Amino acid sequence: MSILIPINHSEILKIYKETDQFTHKGIQGHAMIIGGSYGKIGSISLASKACLKTGCGLVTVFIPKCGYTSIQTSNPEVMVLTDEDEEVISEIHFEIKPQAVGIGPGLGQSDKSHNALQLFLKTYKIPMVIDADALNIISKFKKLLIHVEPKTIITPHPKELQLLIGSWISEKDKLNKSISFSKEHQLIIVMKGSPSRVIDGETVYENTTGNAALATAGSGDVLTGMITSLLAQLYSPLHAALIGVYLHGLTADIALPETGCQSFIASDIIAHIGKAFLSLEKEQKIN
C-alpha cells in the first residue's frame, strides 16, 4: 500500500540546507547538462541557466557543435564542451568529473544519439537526471534500463510516462503502474503534471506549489536543470527531486500576480528562482 506525503513548506524545511557563507564555487558542485541538437539548443540554454541559478558552483554543457556560439553568448557563465558532430550528439566523452549529470533535453532520437546514450549509460556512473528525448530513446529500447543506476531520477511528462509504463485507464491505475515501474527499476520518478508527484517505490510525494502558468515550452528543461543542480550540491536523489519540484512550482506562484498565466514563460521560472529561495529561507528563520 502506497504512502502519500505532501511536498509543502514544512516538509521541505526539514531537508533544505542554507548555503555556507564561507563556501566557494569549487565546493558548490559541478554539474553537467547533456543534450541539444540542431534547432533545439534552447533547451540546453534553459536547463544550464536554471542549474546555475539553483546554486551550483560550476556548470558545463555537452552539446553538438552547432550550439557552441549560442550557449557561449546566452549563458556566459556556463562552460561548453562539444561533440564531434555538427548537429547531433554522437559520442559523449569528457575528462572532467561532475558531481551530477542531467541528460536528454533537446537530444533528439537519431541513431547516433541512441548509440551515444547507450554507451554513456554503460560507462558513466554518476548521479543523474534523465529527461525528454533520453527517456524517449529508453522507452523504445527498454534494455537500456539495465544500465541505469539505482535512484536515478527520471522526469517524464504524461506522454513520456505513457511510453515508459504503458497506457492507463484511470489516475489510480497510472499511479499504481508508476509505483511498480519505480520499484522494478529502482528509479525516482518525477511525474510532471497537475499536481506533480515524486515517486520513490511505495512512497508518493504530492507537490503543493505551482499553477497552470507552468504549462509552457521549456518548463521541463528548467526543472531538469534545477534538480541536477541540487544533486551536484550533494543532496540525495530524493531530496534533490523534492526540493526541485517544490521550488519550480513556487516560482510560478510568486510570479503569477505580475506576469499573469498567459504570458509566463520558462525564462520567468529562472528569473524567480532567487525569490523562491528567499521565501524558503525567510520561513526557515521564522521556524
Rank of each mutant, 00 (worst) to 15 (best):
M1N: 15
P6S: 13
N8W: 05
S10G: 14
K14P: 12
I15V: 11
I15C: 10
T19D: 13
D20S: 15
F22Y: 13
T23V: 13
T23S: 13
G26P: 12
Q28Y: 11
Q28C: 15
G29V: 03
A31R: 04
I34L: 05
G35P: 06
G35E: 05
G36I: 01
G36M: 03
Y38R: 12
G39N: 03
G42T: 04
I44P: 00
I44A: 09
I44C: 05
L46H: 00
L46V: 04
S48F: 07
K49G: 12
C51V: 03
C51E: 01
G55A: 04
C56A: 14
G57I: 06
V61P: 00
F62E: 03
C66P: 04
Y68D: 14
Q72P: 07
N75I: 07
E77W: 09
E77T: 09
V78K: 00
V78A: 04
M79K: 02
E86R: 11
E87P: 09
E87N: 13
I89M: 10
S90M: 06
F94P: 06
K97V: 10
K97Q: 12
Q99I: 08
Q109K: 14
K112A: 12
K112G: 09
A116M: 09
K125Q: 08
I130Q: 01
D131Q: 07
L135C: 00
N136V: 08
I138Y: 05
I138H: 02
I138M: 03
S139F: 01
L144K: 10
L145K: 00
T152E: 01
I153Y: 01
I154H: 02
K159M: 11
K159A: 11
L164P: 02
S167D: 15
I169S: 15
S170G: 10
D173H: 12
K174E: 12
L175Y: 08
K177C: 05
S178H: 08
S180E: 13
S180A: 15
S180K: 15
S180P: 12
S182C: 10
H185L: 08
Q186A: 14
M191G: 08
R197W: 13
E202R: 15
V204F: 09
N207R: 06
T209D: 08
G210T: 01
G210S: 06
N211M: 07
A212L: 14
A213N: 06
S219R: 05
G220P: 00
T224L: 03
L234W: 12
V245M: 08
L247A: 05
D253L: 01
I254S: 00
A255M: 02
F264R: 04
I265P: 02
I265M: 14
A271P: 05
I273G: 00
G274W: 13
F277W: 11
L280C: 07
E283Q: 14
Q284Y: 12
K285E: 13
N287C: 14
N287A: 14
